[in-house]
């Protein structure tokens, strides 16, 4: 069997999703954002949402998300994506609206917008990339930075007595009556990627069916911010992040409005 025999269209089992634009992503090597973008593009394509989806991009590393997925986008101010998405979803109920936010955007400066969009049960999907650090501004402490974790603003490690504790905002989101689906996923292994893909699919279907707010946390790595190679960052995440942020569905229910 030669390579030419195998590399034929009829044998293709995986290709770059059509909705992923040709632009090379600006993310650092090994960044989880790339995998999640790819999954969102794949699922939007699979569910036939190319023409109806509207993404709301955050401020942070994913600020340029709109350059990578071939749908309509709005770039929100820092932390305000859920408010922007609220208006879009209410004014244009035929659209499938989602936000894509990092931990600083969603769980620090945008906490109020996050909590209130969830508690109103807005028909949106929130994708929450939690890598415990501010990537774009150069590796500062995030609301989700683990205790003891070194960042450029906690150079000796996060101390609860000075910096407070990391926030598990997905657990808070799950407590709110407006969320129908809250799950915590990762994309560090092929199995994790498959699970995350399924979660995003579920969340987008919920959004289309107006079932309330779907909240998909992806525990992620930031190899540049963590100062580890991508492979070591994955290992560090498994050993440290998952203890604080265990993977799995936190809530899967029906919202009664």
């Amino acid at each position: 069997m030669t390579r030419e025999d195998i590399i034929k269209d009829e044998n293709k089992v995986y290709s770059r999703p059509r909705l992923l634009l040709d632009a090379t992503m600006h993310y650092c090597p090994g960044c989880s954002h790339g995998v999640v973008h790819k999954l969102v593009a794949e699922v939007l394509e699979e569910l036939g949402m190319e023409d109806t989806a509207i993404g709301v991009a955050p401020v942070g590393c994913a600020v340029f998300a709109y350059n990578y997925i071939d749908i309509d986008w709005i770039e929100a101010a820092h932390g305000r994506a859920p408010a922007v998405a609220t208006a879009v979803s209410r004014l244009q109920p035929d659209n499938v609206v989602f936000t894509y936010q990092g931990d600083g955007d969603l769980a620090a400066i945008g906490t109020a917008e996050t909590i209130h969009a969830c508690t109103r049960g807005e028909n949106i999907m929130i994708i929450f990339i939690n890598n415990g650090i501010y990537g774009m501004t150069g590796g500062q402490m995030a609301p989700t930075t683990l205790e003891g974790m070194k960042t450029s603003t906690t150079p000796y490690g996060r101390r609860a007595d000075i910096n407070g504790f990391p926030v598990k905002i997905s657990d808070i989101a799950a407590m709110l009556d407006g969320t129908c689906y809250v799950t915590r996923q990762a994309v560090h292994t092929p199995a994790a990627v498959r699970s995350a893909r399924k979660a995003i699919r579920q969340a987008l279907i919920n959004t289309r069916e107006k079932r309330g707010t779907s909240f998909v946390e992806i525990v992620s790595t930031c190899s540049s911010g963590w100062k580890l190679s991508p492979v070591k960052a994955n290992k560090w995440m498994e050993e440290n992040m998952f203890a604080k942020y265990p993977l799995g569905d936190i809530k899967n229910t029906e919202v009664k409005k």
């Binding site: 195998i6 992503m25 092929p190």
Partner: peptide, 26 residues
Amino acid sequence: PDACIGCGSCAAVCPDACIEVYRLVD
């Protein structure tokens, strides 16, 4: 290359979507 079983694990974790996978069952 001869060891490839076309499982797609590489493509799944690739953040830059630069891997295409082919699989043939003989």
